[in-house]
């Protein structure tokens, strides 16, 4: 079964809100103007089977995050087909759905439900979530008094307790201490072993090598290469050193 299939997916951004709205309605009638910015152009991508791990690499602004957002359903493509089978959990920016004035407890419920859990599911997993995040003493404290690391840990912990089929990960390891990073890497591996597929965006090629089987290399919104991790990473590195020399 295809977990994710993207066929000829393109996404265009315009300068102003009104133009975006007009373009959205009438794009098929107007000819493309020079100020249209295509963040994605004709991207094809397939992730099939369970426990599959796909990485996305590319320079800043190459469309990696846009592609993740299209797959997450946060935004719609301008054209193309997107098929997603299974519960998608985004780890795009941890703690994004959290509110600083709500307590840790309230945030766990709100964020858990936002990510697709039912209330009784959150209640059942509550202790496990708190324990993984390591913030049990601070449950009734507003989130604004948490440290950045604590907020991130709580966000990560809620997200991994959703019974996901597909994880979308965007540079989630930036924060958190070494111990937490090691635990989250281990958690990712455990989830892969349980059949969770993942899509990982990272600039850290070491992590890409560790956590992916296949890699999609994006360059200015187009697919530069798609294949087994090692060969794509090699050609990406080769292209980068080539560019540095010239």
């Amino acid at each position: 079964m295809d977990r994710i299939r993207c066929v000829d997916v393109s996404k265009c951004f315009l300068r102003s809100n009104m133009e975006t709205m007009i373009a959205h309605r009438y794009l098929r009638r107007r000819s493309p103007a020079s100020d249209w910015f295509w963040a994605l152009e004709g991207v094809d991508l397939t992730l099939s089977g369970s426990g599959k791990r796909l990485g996305i690499i590319g320079d800043n602004g190459s469309g990696k995050t846009t592609l993740l957002r299209v797959i997450a359903g946060v935004t719609q493509p301008t054209s193309g087909t997107v098929v997603v089978n299974g519960r998608v959990v985004p780890l795009l920016e941890l703690g994004a759905g959290m509110h600083p004035d709500l307590t840790g407890r309230e945030n766990i419920y709100l964020n858990g439900i936002l990510l697709g859990m039912r209330r009784h599911e959150v209640r059942r997993k509550f202790d496990a979530i708190v324990e993984f995040a390591g913030v049990s003493e601070f449950m009734d404290m507003p989130l604004k008094h948490y440290s950045v690391g604590m907020t991130m840990r709580l966000g990560f912990s809620v997200a991994i307790h959703v019974d996901a089929n597909i994880l979308l990960v965007d540079e989630a390891w930036g924060v958190g201490d070494a111990g937490f990073q090691a635990r989250s890497l281990e958690q990712m591996r455990r989830m892969h072993a349980q059949g969770v597929s993942s899509l990982l965006v990272s600039h850290d090629l070491t992590i890409i090598r560790q956590l992916t089987d296949e890699v999609l290399w994006l360059q200015s919104g187009r697919v530069a290469a798609f294949g087994p991790t090692e060969s794509v990473v090699k050609s990406y590195l080769a292209a980068n050193s080539e560019r540095r020399r010239s």
Binding site: C12, V82, G86
Partner: peptide, 13 residues
């Protein structure tokens, strides 16, 4: 010219 036609299928709803 690209057409503004897209299709999204998601399951489970």
């Amino acid at each position: 010219m690209r057409q503004s036609r897209f299709r999204i299928e998601r399951s489970p709803k």
